[in-house]
């Protein structure tokens, strides 16, 4: 399970000055550590330990069978020279760019349209957000069926205008786009809700003032709404890039665990999985996983810097 942290404070009072409060309650709050113990036990056992253990494994030639001697930086050197690492990294970046752009623009359009205040609000929200609640397997099943070359709905519609049939998931040039389409459909609802919340936070008097100054609807959209949504767009963009880079499930399922035609849809995490669980090279899989982890950490820290500078 992965989740996204929004930087904005929830609708609650700002935290009291902790220094004074802390001093005041020292005697009363002794034993506070014990509240964190149950969490810390899980945290240490199932997060900190596997992170450290994975880092250790990356420097060994361990297999699933066990054992594994010290391999130095051998795995990392091999990874940097492994064409499959570069190909899967390239596929992952392609997926990330190809999915992030529509996953910013479409939710923005949805939110702007829903925010017009037309009747049937619950229906629009349901239509856009419902797919986000589906298990990934359901999404994969539906989209494999929709993109099916002979019987699929997409090719049926395209045939009506004289195109096709296109074997979407079976040919290299379109396979990743099929997965991107499924992903956009599946997750747009989440970004849509973030945009909708931001729109609802724009004070109405700004529009009133601009209307008195003679600004028309398009002018208001360009000069008020979109600029005020900028922080949300940055947030959505960053969260989406980080989420898209971690793609695995839908690719694995929609290409029936093969990585697509000529490996054109195999993501880096899928390569980690295959290296570890089909080739049983745990050490090498861990090395690739840690290289990927490094990329995520660098991007996450860059994101933090970006937001901190904005807030300062």
């Amino acid at each position: 399970m992965s989740t996204a942290v929004q930087v904005e404070q929830p609708a609650s009072a700002p935290p009291p000055p902790t220094a004074a409060a802390g001093r005041r309650s020292i005697s009363a709050s002794s034993g506070g550590f014990w509240f964190t113990v149950p969490f810390l036990v899980f945290f240490a056992a199932f997060l900190v330990y596997p992170v450290v253990y994975g880092l250790y494994l990356a420097f060994t030639d361990a297999t699933l069978a066990g054992g594994g001697g010290f391999a130095g930086v051998g795995n990392f050197a091999e990874a940097l020279g492994d064409p499959l690492v570069w190909q899967t990294l390239g596929n992952t970046v392609f997926f990330t760019i190809g999915s992030t752009i529509p996953l910013v623009l479409l939710p923005l359009a949805m939110a702007l349209l829903v925010h017009l205040g037309l009747p049937g609000q619950w229906l629009w929200r349901l239509a856009f957000f419902a797919p986000y609640l589906l298990p990934v397997t359901v999404v994969s099943l539906i989209w494999v069926w929709i993109l099916q070359p002979e019987l699929g709905l997409v090719n049926d519609y395209l045939a009506a205008v004289g195109i096709g049939p296109i074997p979407w998931l079976q040919q290299e040039s379109t396979a990743m786009w099929g997965i991107i389409a499924a992903t956009v459909w599946w997750t747009a609802g989440f970004n849509f809700l973030l945009y909708l919340a931001a729109l609802q936070n724009i004070p109405g008097h700004i529009y009133e003032a601009s209307a008195i100054d003679g600004a028309g609807p398009w002018r208001q959209l360009r000069s008020i709404t979109l600029p005020l949504l900028n922080p949300t767009t940055v947030l959505v963009l960053v969260l989406q890039v980080l989420a898209s880079l971690k793609v695995f499930d839908q690719i694995y399922q929609m290409t029936l665990a093969t990585g697509g035609p000529n490996g054109s849809t195999r993501s880096i995490l899928m390569y980690v999985y295959e290296t570890g669980f089909t080739s049983y090279r745990l050490g090498y899989a861990s090395a690739i996983a840690n290289i990927f982890f490094l990329i995520i950490v660098v991007l996450s820290l860059a994101q933090l810097r970006l937001f901190n500078r904005k807030e300062a």
């Binding site: 399970m1 997060l47 995490l269 570890g276 996983a289």
Partner: peptide
């Protein structure tokens, strides 16, 4: 800091564990 850790990278060590 641990929020940054993608659960997917833990599958190999976690499985062995």
């Amino acid at each position: 800091a641990a929020i940054m850790v993608p659960p997917q990278i833990l599958i190999v060590p976690l499985f062995r564990q």
